[in-house]
Amino acid sequence: MNRHGFWSDVKKYKTLLLMLTPAVIFFLVFAYLPMAGIILAFKQYSYTGGVFGSPWNGLDNFRFFFNSGDAWRVTRNTALYNIAFIVVNNVLQIFAAILLFEAVGKWFRKLAQTAIFLPYFISWVVVGAIAYNLFNYDVGTLNVLLKGLGMTPIDVYNTPSYWPFILVVVSAWKALGYGSIMYLAAITGIDTEMYEAAEIDGANIFQRIMKITVPNLMPTVIILVLLAIGNIFRGDFGMFYNMVGNNGLLFSSTDVIDTFVFRSLTTSNEIGMSAAAGFYQSLLGFGTIIFANYAVRKYDKDRALF
């Protein structure tokens, strides 16, 4: 009875199922099949054996990864950078969105929005070129300025301690437009009657912002921040790789899980260990996103991811 129902449903939805087939195959091949490859994390990879023929080696890959000290360093860097990005980017974006909405005329708003959205559109390679232009020791603009002011030039590409600051600024620069436009859309959605009521009550513009705009924006902020926290163990490979590249001098302060996995795979060829590191990242990521979704669900059921 049940089976009959199933097959008649298949027949009923024949066209729809056919239309889904390419996407299903795509995600099977590019997402689900690689999941099976996770077993590599527990194997001693050999080219002849491949994923399934290579011998098992238990938890050796993980032991190697954790005992090398790399695990802690890259996990800490990934999380700390993402926390810094979340805080700085959101504060700046909300600030810009409020000013765009409340403080300036329509014409200027368009103009400013166009300017701050531009960095979103360029590739990380171009950002890398910009960084080179700014920070190169011999010809970089920063050192030109420092010399002009009679100060000693600084060697940015050899000094790990500058990089947390640089990367936070670069991230803010690239994400400002995207985020502030998103927050601007949320502000535009606030019920104008509330503003009118505040006007009648004699609130000045600053009180209006602090008592109406900001509180009404909070739900959006909380959701976006929680979702970002869900991705706290995913590093932005494009950014780190193009800003820092394979410059080992800077790894202590710039190496994140993603760049570490990439290097282990492509340069040092430690397939098993990099698979283990990747699996470790996937698990951390899965845990945090489940947690973040749980938090969103508690806060506002309708806006949870699942």
């Binding site: 996770i38 990099s274 489940i290």
Partner: peptide, 22 residues
């Protein structure tokens, strides 16, 4: 069911290495 099938891939992945080798 299908929505979840697609959506799950954003929650969990095999990581770079298996994807690359495949």
């Amino acid at each position: 069911h299908f929505s979840f099938f697609f959506f799950f891939t954003t929650l969990f992945s095999g990581g770079l290495v298996p994807w690359y080798l495949m």
